[in-house]
Design a protein around this nucleic acid. Structure first.
Lengths: 188, 188
DNA sequence: GTCTATAAGATGATAGAC
DNA sequence: GTCTATCATCTTATAGAC
């Protein structure tokens, strides 16, 4: 099951994360995997199929990691640190953008099924983050104006996606780290 | 001076903002402007020239608007509200991504001169925002841990760029508005 | 499952007429 | 300045052999 289909998915994912959906071709994948471009159509008949499969696989893997983190700890700040860590790993180890952050920017140019999978990534992430922030609010006895969990979630996700863009444009991952550290410190 | 060169720039800008640098062609521009694709090469010999000119023009116009805002008021929160308003206009009136936010995501796939202009946009924006936050810090007599203006600038820019991505993926501009309103309220 | 061959169209770019 | 014509190359996708 760790066959060629997975290698195609991972290679396509890397290409989308660095070049965008319209910035890669079947041939680019073929050259990296060591197969002919036409052969890819056997596994993924169209580029839309491939793109949707990549986005779905990415979202599922992402959410699975988040659920594992939730099994390890219930501490909200610790969970948010783990959450930010997922984004950091993408940026630091491969100099890639968040797959769905990239696709979100291009959403107007995407086939519908790819756009739909992109939307799902954000929906599920916002749901997970909202639960974490709602938990955190319950911890303290509602101090100060008590922020809305949904807005905190949207804020945190936007901050991380944007910090990745700033880091990529500046060529400085430190910018991402500083933004995350400050935000986590503020939440504590 | 409001001739065809400007129409080509504006059309190319709109295409990059919605489809990305690799998501449009000379023919796309030609169809919208009412000229043949080959004729564009007279004004912009290569796609790299065109891309760099679009980014440069965008950054210059953006900074010019910010300087005008600075002439109107010195109130930091009012300036940040105006700053966020520029991003909102892009998102709301044309459903476009910030040009350089889009290019930042694709930076690994860009010709060097286009990547360089993208970097300049972020540098100049961070410089402007840093000055605003430094001003704001001087207003009060250094209350609490006194945040670093450079980090506040990077944070604010990242938040706006990311909020645009979240809004685009969700198909909900309200998400952008809520994020901005909450952040401005927090800064007051 | 992967290959070759091929289609049908898009792409960035150039040459030369008007 | 804009056109037509043309180029070499790339792109997604299909058909059929192995």
């Amino acid at each position: 099951m760790d066959g060629i289909k997975e290698r195609l998915l991972e290679t396509a994912q890397a290409l989308i994360q660095t070049r965008g959906y319209n910035g890669f071709s079947y041939r680019d994948i073929a050259d990296k995997v060591g197969i002919r471009a036409a052969s890819i159509h056997y596994h993924f008949p169209t580029k839309e199929c491939l793109g949707a499969a990549v986005a779905a696989h990415y979202t599922d893997a992402f959410m699975a990691e988040l659920d594992r983190a939730r099994d390890r700890t219930k501490d909200p700040v610790e969970l948010l640190r783990a959450y930010a860590g997922l984004f950091r790993r993408t940026l630091a180890t491969k100099d890639r953008m968040c797959l769905c952050g990239m696709l979100a920017a291009e959403v107007a140019a995407l086939p519908i099924s790819v756009a739909a999978e992109t939307k799902r990534f954000f929906q599920e992430n916002l749901r997970w983050l909202t639960a974490v922030f709602a938990d955190a609010a319950g911890d303290h006895g509602k101090a100060s104006p008590s922020p809305i969990p949904e807005e905190q979630a949207s804020h945190f996700l936007a901050l991380l996606e944007g910090a990745m863009l700033v880091a990529k444009a500046s060529g400085d991952i430190g910018a991402f780290d500083r933004t995350v550290r400050t935000e986590l410190g503020r939440l504590q």
